[in-house]
């Protein structure tokens, strides 16, 4: 079967361990205020790809991916195409490839996928229900269920949160995140990603309103300091 993707990056260095092939899957149920890939919300302009094509693409660059690299399914929300994802991951795993999914956890039918992947990068939009809804436009429950699944399967996790000036860039927020993460076993790292406005021009092109307006970029040094609090 075919998967729907918006892009494929052969030298991903920020989405999982090592250098990786990153597959950006189309479609997402969340509408996060700061999303910098609004083109991935729907599959309107998506391209199709097969599992075999992903494997071939991986093989083309295999020597660069070394011991630690592999394939990351990102998006969009990769788990919305769980049937295709399962097929692709089975094929990759049969070829000994390290597979990561980069997800927000809002999806269904992911049980088998979760069993197979080596690492889950989980984007924690917020740890409190109100704020979660404010940022993503959806209720907290789907995310909570996904997290429970990860915990029950003892999945290796990297947690991530985007830090936006004026929304969650204060110490109190970070401490709450720290407390939340403490109760999750098998967390290998927590990363804070500084908000940037580079996605803004995409909104203009797509004719979608950009709700963060002139919110400035998040200071990288300050983000680093906040991240250090999590240690």
């Amino acid at each position: 079967m075919n998967g729907k993707i918006t892009d494929i990056e052969s030298m991903g260095s920020a989405d999982g361990p090592g250098v990786r092939l990153v597959v950006f899957m189309a479609g997402c149920k969340l509408r996060c205020l700061y999303c910098h890939n609004p083109e991935t919300w729907t599959d309107k302009d998506a391209k199709t790809i097969t599992a075999e094509e992903i494997l071939q693409r991986f093989k083309k660059y295999e020597t660069y991916y070394g011991e630690h690299g592999g394939v990351t399914f990102s998006g969009g929300e990769p788990l919305l195409q769980s049937e295709f994802l399962l097929e692709a991951i089975k094929l990759l795993k049969a070829n000994g490839v390290h597979v990561t999914i980069d997800t927000c956890g809002v999806a269904d039918g992911y049980d088998e996928v979760l069993d197979l992947v080596d690492l889950v990068i989980l984007d924690i939009k917020a740890v409190e229900r109100d704020e979660y809804k404010f940022i993503t436009g959806r209720e907290f429950d789907d995310f909570e269920n996904f997290l429970k699944s990860c915990i029950s399967k003892n999945k290796k996790l990297w947690l991530r949160q985007v830090i936006v000036p004026g929304i969650n860039d204060d110490e109190a927020h970070v401490l709450k995140l720290k407390k939340f993460a403490k109760n999750i076993p098998n967390v290998e790292r927590i990363e804070l990603l500084p908000y940037h406005s580079m996605g803004k021009s995409k909104y203009e092109k797509l004719g979608i309103e950009y709700r963060l307006g002139d919110t400035p970029n998040m200071d990288k040094e300050l983000t680093k300091k906040l991240e250090d609090m999590l240690k």
């Binding site: 920020a14 090592g18 250098v19 295999e62 020597t63 991916y65």
Partner: peptide, 13 residues
């Protein structure tokens, strides 16, 4: 990460 990834890229090349 930059150091490790640069090593991977040079190795791969």
């Amino acid at each position: 990460e930059q150091v490790e990834n640069l090593v991977s890229i040079i190795d791969g090349y």
